[in-house]
Design a protein around this nucleic acid. Structure first.
Lengths: 138, 138
DNA sequence: GTGCGTGCAAACCGTTTGCAATCGG
DNA sequence: CCGATTGCAAACGGTTTGCACGCAC
């Protein structure tokens, strides 16, 4: 088996705590700045390393964003995202995701399998304007 | 109106030709190297500038990829993509995209609108292993 | 004590940009 | 001839990495 021995360092805990506290899909930079407020000595490299570790361990998820820095999600359950084109914030679509899921996986992946692909998953992101920005822009 | 005066330069034509010849969603780097074969004096900056221009003019499209360099698509009609996790190539899903389209837009965007979002679009990409790589890996 | 994880800084990759020179209209 | 577009190189943002040290086990 390949279970690399992992250590429980303070830094790793701080990174996980940060992602869980900053609920809105923070970037590595945001995680870094958040930790800095309480632990002045952390390095950005360590933040990146731990974020990647936590993703590899399936503790957090990397959210696909169209452009800009990667974002991280403390929720591991399947759901999709909307990115506001105005403020850049990324929101969850907690809703009827399940229904959508089935339709996507049953339909398009079936076509792919017929073409000889092995399908392992998909990523989807919506774009639009969030309620907050709509108010402001009126 | 803001219709910036565009010029028809050799470089712009070369970039468009390259994207249309390299059908498999080339990266800017690949476009650059392709042009270099016949026109030794082009600069990478110019390739990027022209790719972005052509995207802005709706002549080509930028394909969303999970990670790695941006890719460009000579096909402007709506369709989705699969990225092979083994070789990294991006393939078209020409198929029943239309059907899927409706289901996605009707269902998830409706939920978003109820939540107060204005939805402008979405991007989806599938991941898997392509037929070629399946053969090789056996 | 062993070696994984750290801090630091340099390197990396893909992309954009400032500038003077060029060339399309 | 005007100014949009070029080539070049430097700078950019986000991320990874090499190294010596330090800390978890």
């Amino acid at each position: 088996m390949n279970t690399p021995k992992r250590r429980n360092t303070i830094q790793k805990k701080l990174v996980l705590d940060a992602v869980q506290s900053l609920k809105n899909h923070p970037t590595a930079e945001e995680v870094y700045r958040y930790i800095l407020m309480t632990y002045k000595n952390i390095s950005k490299g360590t933040v990146y390393r731990n974020l990647n570790m936590l993703v590899a361990e399936d503790v957090i998820k990397k959210v696909m964003v169209v452009d800009g820095a990667d974002r991280f999600d403390h929720t591991i359950t399947n759901h999709n995202h909307v990115k506001c084109e105005n403020c850049g914030k990324v929101y969850d679509i907690s809703s009827e995701a399940g229904d959508l899921e089935e339709k996507i996986t049953s339909q398009d992946t079936e076509f792919l399998r017929k073409s000889g692909f092995t399908v392992s998953g998909y990523k989807i992101i919506f774009t639009g304007i969030c309620p907050n920005c709509i108010k402001k822009c009126q």
